[in-house]
C-alpha cells in the first residue's frame, strides 16, 4: 500500500487543525487535528454519533466548521473551496446515485459536470463500468440495483473526475460480506494509482485491513492515532486461556501460576493468564504446569485486536450510552440493516 506513496508525485493530503462544530447545544466536533499523508489510506474509526460524518462533511466542503483550519488536496477549505472541490471525490454513506437514470447515464452526467468532452466522457464511462463490473447492467435504471451495486456505481461516479483525494464515508455500511470484500478490493486498487483515501468506518476489521493510519474518534475527540499495530500495542489485552476438565486441576494450576481470583472462571473451568503470546512465554506457562503435574485440555492464545483497542478507548465507564459501541454482534446487525 505504501509503495504507491513513493511512486506518485505527491498531491497533498489533508492537514486540519482544531476543527470544531456544534449544532445548538450539541458539540459534535470538539477540536480535532488530522494529518493525512498523500497517497495513503487514513481511517477515521468511531461509533455511531462520534462525529465521523460531520468531519467528512467539513473536509469535503459540504458544511463549514465553527472553528479551525484545514487544507485539503493542497488548498485551503476556507479560501478556495472550489479548488478543493475540483480535486476531491466523495462517496457518502447513502449512495449518491440518480435512481431514475441508468448506470451509464449516471456516469455520463458526471462526465458532463466535469466538463469532459463527449468522446472522453464515453471512453471514461465505459472503462470504469468495466473495471467495476457494471458493464452488463449499464443500461439498467440505478433504482433497480442492489445495495452493493449502487455503492459500486457511486464509487465509479466519484472516479469519473480523476480525483486525487477521495472521501469514503462508511463505504461498506449495510453491505453484505461479499460486496464488502469487493469494495475493499476496489479501494485498495485506488491507492495503487496514488489516490489519497480518507475513510470513515465503524468496522474495526475494515480499518485494520485497509488503513495505513487510523484515528479513533469518540464523542467529537480524537482519542488515539497511529498504525493498527501501534494502537494494538497501546493497550494490554493479550492473554493465554487454559481450559481444564475439572475444578481440582483448575485450582492446582491457579496456585502454581500464582494467579488471583479474577483470572479464574469456575463455571467454564478456564484460566486467563496475561501474556504477550510469544513462544517463550507459552513455554514458561506449560513448564510450570508440567512441574505441578497438572494438564490442561486446551490452550488458546489471544492477541489484542482493534476490538480491544476500540472498546478500551471508547467504551469507558464515564459513558452513559455504552450500548452504542459496536461490538462484533452490533456490527453484524448493522450489516444486515
Amino acid at each position: 500500500m505504501s509503495a504507491a506513496t513513493e511512486r506518485m508525485a505527491p498531491p497533498q493530503g489533508i492537514r486540519a487543525v482544531g476543527l470544531r462544530k456544534s449544532y445548538g447545544e450539541k458539540v459534535v466536533l470538539d477540536g480535532i487535528d488530522l494529518h493525512v499523508q498523500a497517497g495513503t489510506i487514513f481511517a477515521l474509526l468511531g461509533p455511531n454519533g462520534a462525529g465521523k460524518t460531520t468531519t467528512v462533511q467539513i473536509l469535503s466542503t459540504l458544511i463549514a466548521a465553527d472553528a479551525g483550519e484545514a487544507t485539503v488536496a493542497g488548498h485551503s477549505l476556507e479560501r478556495s473551496a472550489d479548488a478543493v472541490r475540483a480535486r476531491i471525490g466523495v462517496t457518502g454513506q447513502f449512495a449518491a446515485v440518480d435512481g431514475l437514470l441508468t448506470a451509464e447515464e449516471n456516469m455520463l452526467l458526471m462526465a458532463d459536470l466535469h466538463h469532459l468532452d463527449r468522446a472522453e466522457g464515453k471512453r471514461r464511462t465505459a472503462e470504469l463500468l468495466r473495471q467495476f463490473e457494471l458493464a452488463d447492467v449499464a443500461g439498467k435504471m440505478a433504482s433497480t440495483f442492489s445495495g452493493g451495486m449502487r455503492r459500486k456505481l457511486d464509487l465509479a461516479m466519484t472516479l469519473v473526475g480523476n480525483p486525487s483525494l477521495i472521501f469514503l464515508d462508511e463505504p461498506t455500511t449495510g453491505l453484505d460480506p461479499r460486496s464488502r470484500r469487493t469494495m475493499w478490493h476496489l479501494i485498495q486498487q485506488l491507492t495503487a494509482q496514488g489516490v489519497t483515501i480518507f475513510l470513515t468506518t465503524q468496522y474495526l476489521e475494515e480499518a485494520d485491513r485497509l488503513a495505513d493510519r487510523i484515528a479513533v474518534l469518540d464523542q467529537g475527540r480524537i482519542v488515539a492515532e497511529g498504525t493498527a499495530d501501534e494502537l494494538k500495542r497501546r493497550i494490554p489485552g493479550g492473554h493465554i486461556r487454559l481450559q481444564f476438565s475439572d475444578v481440582l486441576s483448575l485450582d492446582a494450576a491457579s496456585r502454581r501460576l500464582e494467579l488471583d481470583e479474577g483470572a479464574r472462571d469456575e463455571e467454564k473451568l478456564t484460566l486467563q493468564i496475561p501474556s504477550d503470546g510469544s513462544i517463550p512465554a507459552l513455554r514458561a506457562v506449560l513448564d510450570l504446569l508440567e512441574g505441578a503435574g497438572v494438564s490442561a485440555d486446551a490452550l488458546t492464545v489471544h492477541t489484542p485486536d482493534l476490538d480491544d483497542v476500540f472498546l478500551a478507548l471508547t467504551g469507558d465507564g464515564s459513558r452513559h450510552h455504552a450500548t452504542t459501541v459496536p461490538g462484533p454482534a452490533d456490527t453484524a446487525q448493522e450489516a444486515r440493516r
Partner: peptide
Amino acid sequence: TEGIINRFRTMSI
C-alpha cells in the same frame, strides 16, 4: 432527500 445533491455540492460546478 436522494443524496445525489450532496454529490453535486462537493463538485466544482
